[in-house]
Amino acid sequence: MSIWVTRFDPPAADPAGLVRVAVKDAIDVAGVITTAGCVAVRDRAVPARSDAQCLAGVRAAGAHLVGKTTLTELCVSPVGDNTTFGTPVNPVAPDRIPGGSSSGSAVAVARGEADIGLGTDTGGSVRIPAACCGVVGLKTTWGRVPTRGVWPLAPSLDVIGPIARNVAGAAAGMCLIEPGWTVASAPARSVGRLRIEGADPAAEDVIDAALRAAGLTVREVRLPGWDQTYDTLDTIILGEFWRRHPTLIDADGVGPFVNGVLHAGRAVTAQRLAKAVSARAAWQAEVVAALGEVDILALPTLVGDPPLSTDFAGSPLTRLTAPFNLAGVPALAMPLPSPGFPVPVSLQLVGPLYGEDLLCATGLAIERALTVPAPPHGGCPATPGH
């Protein structure tokens, strides 16, 4: 099992209710080298002088950092593979990819080695591994959780988010990265059902049944600008990635796939990048307008089953996740009971800016309707002495 890049010693005492947190190795932990899953970065790095800012609440709550988890090199790929640091085995379906780039954090949670995993999400890197491993992942609103001390892929898209076994655990993770945050008092009143061409009809049926079981009011919605988002997002990721990491191009210890991405980023002109940023603003306005008509949106997280670990080339893993990174809005991926599928179908709920509270309230309502059991660590972890 290639889950961990670094393991930390367990606490001397193991108090009841201690929350175990796995940290993606793109997030600084004081005194530890951050590798970002790349040999070149590891070999140039020195131990972090301080924790990433997003870990302040984790420390204040007295949670235990179990270790730093593996990831795809430089956070680039949604597959979850890493030829140097190792690819974590999907515990739900060992013949299928674990999803990435936050693969180790999702697998650690799915195996019960951590209660909460922290990951980063630029095009789906929290939600995709959560979906592949049958757990819950929450992409937060862009800019909500500080990214100081976090390895940048594309700074105008990168966010931090928690992974957990169910929605209550994800809510507990949200409490850790934003102390004082709370779940909304009621779920969404109206759900916009978004259907994207190419998604598995059988998975769509599972999602429709879950929304009905929860008694949610559902109406069909469309986002006409959807198909134009992919080129826009690719341009921004490539351009920002190259501009942040020009010294890594052709460097020893950078894999050929990532090196190719760096070369593609170098070809993104300032004019092309500015055009993409302008197109992003139009897309954000479209999504905000749709979320003015309904409380949240619902669609699958993946277009189909996670691909086999031996046959994933060309799989459109980010097709249903990346457009919401471009919009900057929060999104929750949660598994649904779905017998007959190799891994549970993952429902993606998308909320308005700063609507994580509503997403979690709605996800909890769906879990209750589907009789998903409560977690051992429900709610927000208590701070020491409480």
Rank of each mutant, 00 (worst) to 15 (best):
A186Q: 13
V159Y: 02
A154M: 07
A16Q: 15
T83S: 12
G99D: 05
G379W: 07
R96T: 02
R144L: 13
L65K: 12
P246D: 11
D200P: 07
T269Q: 03
I27W: 07
V39A: 15
L238A: 12
G225N: 08
V261R: 15
L299W: 01
G385T: 14
L74P: 04
T147L: 04
A290D: 05
L55C: 12
G31T: 08
G265N: 05
L349M: 04
A281C: 12
Q348Y: 03
P337T: 11
L336I: 10
L233K: 02
I196R: 12
V206M: 04
A213M: 09
R20F: 08
G328S: 00
P375S: 15
H386F: 13
R219D: 13
P162R: 03
G328W: 05
Q53Y: 03
V350E: 04
G355P: 01
I207T: 04
V21L: 13
F257H: 08
D231L: 15
G99Q: 05
G99P: 01
Q348D: 10
A331N: 07
V46Q: 15
R59C: 13
C175T: 02
S101V: 02
A48K: 06
R219H: 11
L18E: 11
A130W: 07
C380I: 10
D295E: 09
D158W: 10
A172P: 03
V329F: 12
R189W: 04
A12S: 15
R165W: 03
F85T: 05
P91R: 02
A52F: 07
W151S: 01
R49H: 13
R42L: 14
P373A: 07
D9I: 06
P155I: 01
N325F: 12
I27T: 06
D208S: 11
A188E: 11
A313P: 00
I97A: 04
P330W: 05
L320V: 09
P152Y: 06
K275S: 15
I249W: 02
V46C: 11
R44D: 14
